[in-house]
Design a protein around this nucleic acid. Structure first.
Length: 745
DNA sequence: ACCCGATGTCATGAA
DNA sequence: ACTTCATGACATCGG
């Protein structure tokens, strides 16, 4: 029952958290499931975590709403999906190690492949590790995961110092921080702004240095983050600069590397593949589109200059500029980049808009490569990547698309994202109240703590009761189990209290770490163990029974059962003797006064039949019989009371544990949410960059670039990409923006 | 003297 | 009807 209850509660909690993480959007599953396994493997590489996901279920639900396998969102999608799977797994049972492994596997390939994203990979891993911490092995996990996390943070250049490894602590702080972040992150614009600015500031320099990027990124990324953050408030409207900057940065970065085409492919392909946003793809896309549109509107002038007027020295810039001229492989690249999934989300454009751009080849001309059939075909197939890739690159891009998941751009973005995340994490951790963490830990170990305390308290008593040692083993074992339940079990089941020294040693050994965590527990344990009635409960322990203690008192009873005084410890001996004398239950005294021929233990613990037989053997007066019955009643009630109290304690302890577990799970889920948001940001950034590239390559009939202020790209539900006037785009963007907000409310 | 925790006891209800 | 158990309430005891 308890397990089931716990399971349900945890499941509900996790589910709730999951919903919140997803942004209360249930369609996450659809996104996740929509993805094709092979793609996943290609992109992410083999990972146990991914393999376990069930595609078929989700696919069914997709029905035309699915994400294109090659869509840019795949990466985010997979991550989200992985997270979901993990979350779900949590409901059933928590296998920390597996989770951690999954993260590592997933991220390593990216980091390694994309030199530009080392930090991101690290952060992801670390975050995942932290998240995974939950579970029975908390301590171990924490220890294991945290180092990585801290490292990641350092790599990222995170300002905040690594927090202690305590998950609980982190979890607590994380929750608050994450929630705040959610609010902040919820807005897609911020992300974009951030990404743009980063690109502007950092990408240019860092991208150029292929190998150096990794090293430089963390610090710069952090700076960029800071800048972005500052700007974010404003960014809703300050996009203009970003647009050009991004493109320029990309162009520059590509040339910097030895092989521009390869780089481009890497960049594009990874971007496309990596982005997987299972959850709020629609929303994300909408936000992205709106942002992009806004940016285009505002920035177009500047962007156009930057994009089209790339620095002469930059090969990339030249390539890009040329790219429009060479429509060749755009299709291919586009397929890789596959925006199809996105296109659905971008349903913003009305049929009108679509018709316009499509109809007018002039507007779309740049997009429509000679090779490519129509824009719709290329884009519809979900490939915007082609647009981004130069013709030269395109060929390579196609081949490499799968393996090259990590792209320079993605890496850059990821890093930037990671920086933010790391900062967030740090903040969270910092926010984490050490006291709380310590408390959590103590609570965690409280069980063991109980066992220890129990052992101690009994020890003093044990001296008095040498004979009880036999029972002690059982009691000790139960206490040693360390869980409150165990303690309870010892009471209820055996009723015998472990007074023997053995029990103490065992408890100590087993409960080592937990010692002294919570005095309360110790008290509880002691209470439970102490009671003599427990001993008396067992017939075979009668001689040792709780009455037994009274018997032991030298003066008190003349019963032969009493253990030799020698057995008692000297110090405790007298003490106990006095105690026993005084304590000698009133019933004991009364029984003695009434000259009852048998021990109270027997009176209390004998089965009814035997008890009746016993009574029948003696000629007892009414007063004696009455007393005996009262003794029996009181004795039993005493044990019952003890059991009841023990039960209460157990329930309380269990509840505490459950609370701790739930808190841990919550913290982990929040962490996962952060990571998910991170991936979402990355995706958005990638999409934005792609958008910029595509738009930048568009040329009108005269071969001149379109003005971002006048035109914008629209993603149709069918996967096609249309070039439409700004006014229309803005209108559509506004419409879509409203919907998501309304949903949330 | 007072408080508090532990324990015992009683009354009551349920099984 | 009797016994046992569970539990709230109260009393007691010792620190």
């Amino acid at each position: 029952m308890l397990s089931l209850k716990k399971y349900l509660t945890e499941g509900l909690l996790q589910f709730t958290i999951l919903l919140s993480l997803i942004g209360v959007r249930v369609d996450v599953d659809t996104y996740l499931t929509s993805q094709l396994p092979p793609l996943r493997e290609i992109i992410l590489g083999p990972s146990s975590a991914y393999t376990q996901t069930q595609f078929h279920n989700l696919r069914n639900t997709l029905d035309g709403y699915g994400i294109h396998p090659k869509s840019i969102d795949l990466d985010n999608y997979f991550t989200a999906r992985r997270l979901l799977s993990q979350v779900r797994a949590l409901d059933r049972f928590q296998v920390p190690t597996t989770e951690v492994n999954a993260w590592l596997v997933h991220r390593d390939p990216e980091g390694s492949v994309s030199g530009s994203q080392p930090s991101s990979g690290l952060t992801l891993e670390s975050s995942s590790g932290l998240q995974d911490v939950t579970g029975p092995d908390n301590g171990v996990r924490e220890s294991e995961t945290e180092p990585g996390f801290s490292e990641d943070l350092e790599d990222l250049g995170a300002v905040a110092p690594p927090v202690s490894g305590d998950l609980t602590k982190e979890d607590i702080d994380l929750i608050d921080i994450l929630w705040r972040q959610d609010i902040d992150l919820g807005a897609g614009r911020e992300i974009f702004d951030y990404s743009h600015r980063q690109k502007e500031q950092d990408v240019d320099k860092e991208l150029q240095d292929g190998a150096e990027q990794e090293d430089t990124w963390p610090s710069e990324g952090a700076e960029a983050l800071a800048r972005n953050l500052l700007v974010d408030g404003e960014t809703g409207e300050s996009f203009p600069a970003q647009f050009p900057a991004d493109i320029s940065s990309i162009t520059e970065a590509v040339p910097s590397e030895s092989e521009p085409p390869g780089l481009q492919n890497n960049l594009l392909s990874p971007l496309l593949t990596e982005t997987e946003s299972p959850f709020d793809l629609e929303q994300q896309w909408q936000d992205l589109m709106s942002i992009m549109e806004m940016q285009a509107m505002e920035v177009n002038t500047s962007t156009s200059e930057i994009l089209y007027n790339a620095p002469p020295g930059d090969p990339l810039s030249t390539n890009y500029s040329l790219a429009p001229n060479t429509p060749i492989n755009q299709n291919v690249s586009l397929h890789q980049a596959s925006l199809g999934g996105c296109s659905q989300d971008f349903s913003l454009f009305s049929p009108e808009v679509e018709s316009l751009p499509v109809a007018s080849s002039s507007t779309l001309l740049p997009l429509v490569p000679s090779n490519s059939t129509s824009l719709n075909s290329t884009f519809g197939s979900t490939n915007l990547a082609g647009l981004f890739f130069p013709a030269q690159l395109n060929s390579t891009a196609n081949d490499t698309a799968g393996p090259e998941l990590p792209d320079p751009l993605g890496g850059l973005l990821d890093e930037a994202m990671l920086d933010e995340i790391s900062l967030m994490d740090l903040a969270i951790e910092e926010g984490f109240n050490p006291v709380q963490a310590s408390q959590l830990e103590e609570e965690f170990d409280s069980d063991s703590g109980l066992s220890l305390d129990s052992s101690h308290s009994p020890s003093s008593l044990s001296s008095s009761e040498g004979s009880s040692s036999s029972s002690s083993s059982s009691s000790s074992s139960s206490s040693s189990s360390s869980t409150s339940s165990s303690a309870s079990s010892s009471f209820s089941e055996e009723g015998a209290v472990g007074y023997s020294s053995d029990s103490e040693t065992l408890d100590l050994e087993e409960a080592e770490g937990a010692v002294g965590y919570q005095p309360e527990y110790s008290k509880f344990c002691r209470m439970s163990y102490q009671d003599p009635s427990q001993l008396s409960c067992l017939p075979y322990l009668e001689h040792v029974g709780h009455n037994h203690t009274y018997n032991m008192a030298p003066s008190a009873l003349d019963s032969a059962d009493l253990p030799p005084p020698s057995a008692l410890k000297k110090g405790s001996k007298e003490k106990q003797a006095d105690f026993l004398d005084k304590q000698m239950s009133r019933d004991e005294h009364r029984a003695r006064a009434m000259k009852i021929p048998f021990t109270n233990d027997k009176i209390i613990n004998l089965p009814v039949e035997e008890f009746n037989e016993l009574l029948s053997k003696y000629q007892l007066s009414e007063a004696q019989l009455s007393l005996i019955r009262d003794i029996r009643r009181r004795g039993k009630n005493k044990m019952a009371a003890q059991n009841c109290r023990k039960r209460k304690l157990d329930t309380i302890l269990n509840l505490e544990r459950d609370v701790e577990d739930l808190q841990r799970d919550k913290a982990r889920l929040l962490r996962e949410k952060v990571e998910f948001l991170r991936s979402l940001r990355q995706m958005k950034q990638k999409v934005q960059s792609l958008y910029q590239e595509v738009f930048g390559r568009l040329r009108d009939e005269n071969g001149r670039p379109y003005s971002p202020s006048q035109y914008a790209l629209q993603y149709a539900g069918d996967g096609s990409v249309l070039l439409i006037p700004r006014t229309l785009a803005d209108q559509q963007a506004r419409r879509q923006e409203r919907k998501p907000k309304d949903r949330r409310k």
